[in-house]
């Protein structure tokens, strides 16, 4: 009996996590894996998302400097003041549906915040974290 419950729970988990992906992210996860990344961890992604580093003017910045603390809400670019649509796919269905767009912004934003490109592992973790929002 316990068996069945476990199976059911596993099935539900699979269904739930299936909802947290798009063809674009499936493609990217596969690409990151072939680039050497192991598994992807939302917790690690969350830590990196919130990790503060020193900006060029000495101020502390993280991804939240532009995207805001609440991913379900709009962010504002810290320099250009441009409104950034919510990052949470639960609120913004357009997010994570275009692999090219995701890669474009990873490249730009990793450079802007961390002054280097992110590794495949870091991108996968961040993506995993963001998809769960």
């Amino acid at each position: 009996m316990k068996w069945h419950k476990l199976l059911l729970a596993l099935g539900m988990l699979a269904a739930a996590s299936a909802a947290l992906a798009t063809p674009a992210t499936d493609e990217l996860f596969a690409r990151y894996k072939s680039a050497g990344a192991a598994g992807f961890d939302a917790e690690r992604g969350s830590k990196n998302w919130n990790r503060e580093v020193q900006g060029e003017a000495g101020e502390m910045v993280s991804c939240t400097a532009c995207h805001g603390k609440d991913l379900g809400k709009e962010g504002r670019h810290r320099k250009t003041d441009k409104v950034i649509k919510p990052m949470a796919p639960s609120v913004n269905k357009e997010r994570y549906t275009d692999a090219k767009k995701i890669e474009k912004w990873f490249k730009r934003n990793c450079n802007d915040v961390w002054s280097r490109e992110c590794t495949a592992q870091e991108k996968g973790d961040l993506l995993k974290f963001l998809l769960g929002q």
Binding site: K79, K104, R108, N109, D112
Partner: peptide, 12 residues
Amino acid sequence: LADHFGEDATLD
């Protein structure tokens, strides 16, 4: 574009 007024704005 990699340093577009202090921002990375690289394009394909």
